[in-house]
Structure formats: structure tokens, C-alpha cells
Computed example of a mutant assay.
Amino acid sequence: MTSLINSFLCIFFFIFLCHLAGIYLYGSGFLIASVQSQKKSQCNDPLMTNTLYAHLHPPELCWTTPLFKKTALYLVDALRFDFAFSTEYPPLFDNVTDPNNFKLYHNNMNVFNSLENQYPSRSSKYHFIPDPPTTTAQRVKAMTTGGVPAFIEISNMFNNPVILEDSLIHQFKENGLRTVFEGDSLWVDLYPNQFNNVSTGPSLDIADLDSVDNICDKALQQHQNASDYDIMISHFLGIDHTGHYYVTNHPSMKKKLIEINNILNRSLYSLPEDTLALVFGDHGLTEEGNHGGSTLEEIDAGLFVYDNRKNRKGGRKEVEKITQVDIVPTIAIGMGIPIPYSNMEH
């Protein structure tokens, strides 16, 4: 009887130790926290000022000569690839060719095809792939720092702690670029006192489909031909909220996509010369209107690049996949400022 009890205890403690080991491995692997460096890139960093590119193109401000006078960033929350672009360009997860199978969210945003047809050498479209978690706060952090937030940081999605590591927003201010922002108040939580002008609205009321987008529209019209900014950032929320409140294939989604298309059409065609415009989604949506995970529907966001320099040559006809954090060095080089220190991409 005693040996039976001893055997039972040994098995029990073995299983218990296996559970502890599993919890430890899970916590130290999947729930690992990202390490954030407080170091900032500087204009006089010798690693960059001594490059061949810097010698061939002597910088006017910092690491490189600016390619643009202004940059306009339009973050359209939950702009899935097939929401943005026509059914001629299939998303990664589906290929709908029969018009009888088109959904209400198909073929509503013609501003991109219009610009591409009119200015083929200045326009490009991309699959814009985020790293999970596909939650907005983590995506904004990734697209401004160039780093990849850890999955456990999803716990901060309603807390929005201030970002202290190096970022595009820090570099804009450090290098004297005037930045205006309109849209989701999340940005002001993450980057307080970093913007020259702010127009925001609440972000968590998913039943409110229009308030933040109306704020963006009004601010865009205010700044459109103004000389009071170098960087303009707009963050629309209506598509995301419509998906959450209804589903993706809903009449309200069609209405909202057309509305955003009209706002973008007015703004993109009115931008000052020598401006880089990027229209992009932070993530996609499932058909049920959710996001946060890593399904193809959630990670296949759209990106449209419009370079309105008259001397622009080239352009891409094929649709490529790029990772979201690639946007960070692209913007930094375009405006001639240092690439944030934590940037991990090309």
C-alpha cells in the first residue's frame, strides 16, 4: 500500500513539474516583452554621414538630402486590401472574378485607380503586411518606431502608454519639421506634446461611425493648401467601427468606403507639389468585422503610394508585398531625417 502511494506521489509531482516547466516556457517565449532602447538616432551619427550615398548626395539637413518638401500620411483604420483596390487586384486570401459574387465592400474606392491611370509613373499599390497582434495601438507603434511589439503588449491596447523610444514622431520634432495631426486620439496618448496642431476625436465608441472621419475631413480642408506643416497625419476610424458594429459585407460599409474615397479624392488631388502621400491600413478585418489575430484577412492591409513630383520617373505596375515597418525608413529618407534607432527593416 505504501509503495502504491509513493508511486502515485511521484507521478503527481512529475506531472506538476511538467506543468510548471510548460508555464515557464510559455511565459518566457510567447509572452516575452520587447526590449526598448532609449537611444535616439542623431544627424551627426558617423555611421550614416560617412556612407557612399551621403558622399554622392551631400545632405542638406541630416543623413540624406530630402526628396520631398512635405509628407501626407492617411491611416485609414482597417483598410483591407480588397476594400481599397478594385477586384482586378485580388487580395492574398481570395480571388473574386465573377461579378455575381462581388460583395458590398468591393469596387467603392476609385480614387486609387484614377490616380494610377492618370499618373502611372507616380503611383503604386501594395499588400501592406503587419506583424501580429493586429491591434491599432501596436500597429501605430510599429509604423512609427520601426520595431515589432511583443504579443503581450496587446494588454496595453486600452491603456496606451507613452512611447519613449526613438520614432518618426520624435525625429520630426527634433529636426524642426512641423507636424499636424487629425483623427484618432490614440496618437496624442502615445505621443503627447509632439504635434504642432491637433484635431482629435474619441476612438472607442464603435457605434460612432462618423465623428472622427468628419474631424479629419474638416482638418484636411483647413491644411490642404496651407504652409503651416511639413508632415500631415490623418487617422480615419469609420471603416473599422463599421466592421465592428455591423459586419464587413453591409450597406453601411459600402457607404463608409465611398465617403472615405471622396475625402481622399479631394485631398490627394489638392496636395502641394513635391509631396509624398501614403494611404494605408493598419490591419485588415475578418468577414465578421474583427481583428487582432494573424489570419490573412487580418494581415492583408492596403497601401497606396502617390508621389506628386513632376520629375518623378519609374513606377510599379506589379503589386508587391511589403512589411508595415518598411514605411519608417521610407518616410525618414524621403524627408531627410535620421531613421529611428529601433528600426528593424529596410
Rank of each mutant, 00 (worst) to 15 (best):
V162R: 08
L164S: 03
E165I: 08
D166E: 07
D166I: 04
S167V: 05
S167G: 02
I169R: 00
I169F: 01
F172Q: 02
F172G: 00
G176V: 01
G176M: 06
L177Y: 05
T179E: 01
E182N: 12
S185E: 14
S185T: 06
L186M: 14
L186Y: 01
W187T: 00
V188W: 04
D189A: 11
Y191K: 05
P192T: 03
Q194R: 06
N196T: 11
V198T: 15
S199R: 15
P202S: 14
P202I: 08
S203T: 13
D205F: 07
I206H: 11
I206Y: 15
A207Y: 14
D208A: 04
S211Y: 14
S211M: 08
C216T: 05
A219P: 04
L220G: 09
L220T: 14
Q221T: 12
N225H: 10
S227I: 06
S227H: 04
D228T: 12
D228A: 02
D228C: 03
D230Y: 00
M232Q: 01
M232I: 04
S234F: 14
T242P: 06
G243N: 07
H244M: 06
N249I: 12
H250Y: 14
M253A: 13
K255M: 10
K256G: 03
L257A: 12
I258D: 09
I258C: 01
I258N: 13
E259R: 14
I260P: 05
N262M: 15
L264V: 08
N265H: 12
S267H: 13
S267C: 02
L268K: 09
Y269K: 10
S270D: 08
S270R: 01
P272R: 03
P272N: 07
P272W: 13
D274Q: 12
D274T: 06
T275R: 06
L276N: 02
A277D: 10
L278C: 10
V279G: 00
V279E: 04
V279F: 04
F280E: 05
G281F: 15
D282Q: 07
D282M: 12
H283A: 03
G284Q: 08
L285C: 08
L285S: 15
L285D: 12
T286F: 10
T286K: 11
T286Y: 05
E288N: 11
E288H: 11
N290C: 09
N290I: 07
N290D: 15
H291I: 10
G292Q: 13
G292L: 10
G293F: 15
